[in-house]
């Protein structure tokens, strides 16, 4: 089984829809706070969280940053990432997750304390006593590859 890292790859220029139980808007700071079962969808990626604070771009062209807290989950394709908190800078396509981060791809899990993930390139770096488990192909198998190549997960 192959670890394919394309799952969370995402074009962060697509429109972002946000749904939640309640919304509160602070006129002075321009910050909107969604609370209760927050669901954010962008292309194939859905983000669920306890609550989310949205920071709109200064020039009013859309959402600049999303601050999630209360066990946030990013899910896309066969990949999913959970953490206590996450900050998604939409323009840069960069997600910074902190606090019991858990990245799962198929049957492989990677756990750590902090992860910086680039949605555009589909690459990420996890820190803080990272632990992962994987199924190494035995050397013998490697010499005789399986009859059917494993299907890559289409993004």
């Amino acid at each position: 089984q192959q670890i394919e890292f394309k799952g969370l790859q995402q074009d962060s220029s697509l429109p972002v829809e946000v749904a939640a139980d309640s919304l509160a808007v602070d006129q002075t700071s321009g910050l909107a706070t969604f609370d209760g079962n927050v669901v954010v969808v962008q292309g194939d990626m859905t983000i669920k969280a306890g609550n989310a604070r949205v920071e709109y771009a200064a020039d009013g062209t859309g959402i600049a940053k999303l601050y999630f807290s209360g066990r946030v989950t990013f899910a896309g394709g066969t990949e999913a990432a959970q953490a206590d908190e996450a900050v998604y800078t939409v323009a840069a396509g960069e997600v910074v997750m902190t606090g019991d981060v858990l990245l799962t791809q198929g049957s492989t899990t990677i756990a750590g304390q902090k992860m910086v993930y680039d949605l555009q390139k589909g690459t990420g770096k996890m820190e803080g006593r990272v632990q992962t488990s994987f199924t190494p192909k035995s050397a013998a198998e490697k010499k005789a590859p399986k009859a059917t190549p494993t299907p890559g997960a289409a993004p």
Partner: peptide
């Protein structure tokens, strides 16, 4: 069997 890997940091580079 599954192998377990523990490290201070883990980089997920693109091509697997």
């Amino acid at each position: 069997d599954r192998a377990t890997l523990v490290a201070d940091s883990l980089q997920i580079a693109g091509d697997s």
